[in-house]
Nucleic acid binder design. Structure first.
Lengths: 370, 370
DNA sequence: TTGTAGGCGTTATCAG
DNA sequence: CTGATAACGCCTACAA
């Protein structure tokens, strides 16, 4: 007499010899039910009797059967995959972004198909793959052109941009208010008496750095302070040192404060100031960054910086995308978060809320800065 | 008279109204060829006349047609996807690993399905997804149990472990020789006259830290030095400071050198020694790490450490996996890389190749240390 | 609750 | 080189 275990083993051997996979049909045959019954057992909330369910599951386990996602997505037209397009830089500087997005997407029953970009030019290649793989939606932490955005539109592919803003584009985004962040930093530094600023910006393709820089400049102008010296940077450690020297060269003297477009540049700036130029920070020079990356909090730096709520932003991006996927509604939405001020030890600051210097324009001073 | 462009536009509208995708059949109809002809045009190296090819491609472009990967993988039994399983920690400390692996996999015509692990317990969940999605192979930078490994075997799923070794398991791995790295560091420090060592290890589940630690201890014993004080760590900044204090407490004095299981811990140790305990590093205490992460090279640290050739290892992992996938050969292989010594400024060292102290056991001294 | 039958969109085979 | 036809493994009305 042959038990179901024995017959399962024999069937498995046969299947292996035929170089094919275990299918729902195999399970059905062995369990003595129809193929659709098996299918229903693997669909949550389907109508199956408890007896059938248990029998099918037992046989499935015996055969190591697992439904084939490709076949499923063919008929459901849902791959349950989301593409995540991210630049190398973004992952280097916010490694937690990836983990958070991935966790959030998985928590919503979808998988992440990952594409990392080394160069801007790889975008076209990556998008071709995205269309092929029939992902349900895309989260992009990379610069897309309006032409690319239009293609998403045309194909009806839900898209969420992470920390990228596109002027005049109707598209879902999750961002921090980087303009406000730049203004805030300028306000706080100006309130503490800094007058001459240097700014080390980010790359040309980064809307984030541009916004931060614009916010700071705007605010300094409002306060009637002398125009800051602005030099470009590439977001890396070396840019910080090079940027500081360039600022000093252009100014002919050491500025009161340097605002850097990212923490890594701020740290480069800081190390250069202290170890290479022998400057006292914050005594002679204040240095501030953006992002609050892990090293900014280390004892050797203790950087004055602004933190983005990356985990919350990642969750929002996942949320927003899944909403768009499930609702089939092409409407767009922008979710904007505020930064958190990190009062480190690399800038001379007066306590938040202290009276800032009267603004040159004579405007009433803002009620609250933070 | 209706041009092909007009008819394409009309067909697209029809397809959209039917809520279905553009298929190769649509292209075939519009181009006046068979569906198989269209299929062949998208298969590199297939036998198609130039005329047909160009006609089909033109029509395909007009319709925005792109082959459906799910349907293809159903029949070819190849998804051209590779799962990458990585712990959050690994991505935090080696963010370049992800980018490199991803690039290498893409360069080989495959995509990366990403799974990040927050906890060990998520492995089972992740593996279930891996089977569902019919990936062609898996690269794992996470700890898998022998039971998991056996399941890969059973399902004939190619697997490459990244920087994890499994005793008595027949499995493909790409690793650094961490035992050798630990020995090397101990040798160099001992050669420079350090006698009493402290070691801050890694978590229990990390074979990497264990090997490094074992190598160092082994070598110190061979050299007849007093047994080092070993304390556990969790790979993070705080563990470095806590570890240093624990070592000092256990020893009753400051050791000559502390070997840390990772750079981040070494940096924590360094900051604690300098800023909290007021110790002169390397004057009173030498500190060394492992991994040569980016901050280890910053001016404030300039850490003595060992670098793993991460890009080469990533390429090797991708290579090895693709080989296993394409060859259908279940044979396994282990690729082992050597670390590179980074002679920073946090340890007193004599130049490489200088005569080390005679070993206590009287064995002939090794020909070359590096 | 269960089984039957058709189709998702592609590639592979084979005859012409 | 080209076209007809049969899979691939599953989901889903629909009928029983």
């Amino acid at each position: 007499m042959s038990t179901v275990e024995h017959r399962a083993a024999a069937l498995k051997a046969l299947i292996a010899s035929e170089h094919r996979r275990v299918t729902s049909y195999d399970v059905a045959t062995l369990a003595g039910v129809s193929q659709s019954a098996v299918s229903r057992c693997f669909k949550p909330g389907a109508s199956v009797s408890k007896t059938t369910y248990e029998l099918v599951m037992k046989v499935a386990a015996l055969l190591d059967y697992i439904p084939n996602a490709a076949a499923r997505s063919l008929i459901t037209r849902r791959s349950n995959m989301v593409a995540l397009i991210i630049t190398n830089q973004a992952n280097l500087y916010y490694p937690e972004l990836l983990a958070e997005v991935s966790q959030q997407i998985n928590a919503r029953g979808k998988r992440v198909l990952l594409f990392t970009l080394q160069r801007e030019s790889q975008v076209d290649h990556v998008l071709a793959d995205v269309w092929q793989y029939q992902v349900d939606g895309v989260i992009a932490a990379a610069q897309l052109s309006p032409v690319h955005i239009a293609e998403f539109e045309r194909r009806g592919m839900p898209l969420v941009l992470f920390n990228r803003t596109m002027r005049d584009q109707i598209v879902n985004t999750v961002t921090c208010d980087h303009l406000e962040a730049g203004r805030l930093l300028a306000s706080r530094l100006a309130a503490a008496g800094h007058r001459q600023f240097g700014i080390i910006g980010g790359g040309r393709d980064s809307s984030v750095a541009t916004e931060r820089q614009r916010g700071a400049c705007e605010r300094l102008a409002e306060l009637g302070l002398p125009p800051p010296v602005v030099v470009p940077g590439q977001y890396d450690y070396r840019s910080g040192a090079a940027g500081l020297k360039a600022v000093i060269a252009q100014l002919g003297t050491v500025p009161d404060a340097v605002i850097c477009g990212s923490d890594v540049m701020a740290i480069g700036c800081l190390d250069c100031a202290r170890h290479e130029l022998g400057l006292d920070v914050p005594g002679q020079l204040s240095v501030a960054g953006f992002d609050a990356v892990e090293p900014s909090n280390w004892a050797s730096y203790n950087l004055t910086t602004l933190r983005q709520p990356v985990p919350r932003m990642a969750a929002a991006a996942a949320d927003l995308l899944c909403e768009r996927i499930d609702s089939h509604d092409p409407g767009t939405e922008k979710r904007v978060f505020s930064v958190e001020f990190i009062d480190g030890a690399t800038a001379r600051l007066t306590p938040a809320g202290a009276t800032p210097p009267r603004v040159a324009t004579g405007l009433p001073r803002p009620v609250a800065i933070m």
